[in-house]
C-alpha cells in the first residue's frame, strides 16, 4: 500500500508539474509539424473535427490545454467517452473505437512533439 501511495503521489505531482509546462506544439513554435506524419493522419482528422475548437492545437482555449497533461492512453479514452465537467461525452456514433484509437495516438504524438 505504501508503494501505491507513493506512486499515486508521484502521479499527482507529475500531473501538477505537467499542467505548468507549456502546451505549445504548433510548427511556428517548435519547428516541427505532424501534418505529414505517417500513421497519424486519421487521428489528426478526428482531432481537428472534434477537439480543436475547444483545445486549439492541444493548447488551452475554451477548455484546458491537453499537451501538458501526461495522461495515459486509457484515461484519455475514458475522458473522451464519459466527458468531464463542461466537456461533453463523445459516444460511438460521434467517435468510433477505431477513430478513438487514432485520436489517442495523435494526442500522445502531439504531446511529445515539443
Amino acid at each position: 500500500m505504501n508503494a501505491g501511495l507513493k506512486l499515486a503521489g508521484l502521479c499527482a505531482i507529475t500531473l501538477f508539474v505537467g499542467a505548468c509546462a507549456s502546451a505549445r506544439r504548433s510548427e511556428p513554435i517548435t519547428g516541427k509539424s505532424l501534418e505529414n506524419s505517417a500513421g497519424l493522419s486519421e487521428g489528426r482528422r478526428v482531432f481537428i473535427q472534434q477537439c480543436h475548437t475547444c483545445h486549439p492545437g492541444g493548447e488551452a482555449g475554451l477548455g484546458p490545454a491537453l499537451n501538458n497533461k501526461p495522461l495515459p492512453r486509457s484515461l484519455i479514452k475514458f475522458q473522451v467517452r464519459h466527458g468531464l465537467g463542461a466537456m461533453p461525452a463523445f459516444k460511438e456514433d460521434q467517435i468510433s473505437s477505431a477513430e478513438l484509437d487514432a485520436l489517442t495516438a495523435y494526442l500522445v504524438a502531439l504531446r511529445r512533439s515539443d
Binding site: L15, P64, K69, L84, A86
Partner: peptide, 9 residues
C-alpha cells in the same frame, strides 16, 4: 488531477 486541471470550468 484530471478533475482539478480539466473539470473545474
Amino acid at each position: 488531477g484530471l478533475v482539478f486541471s480539466a473539470g473545474c470550468y
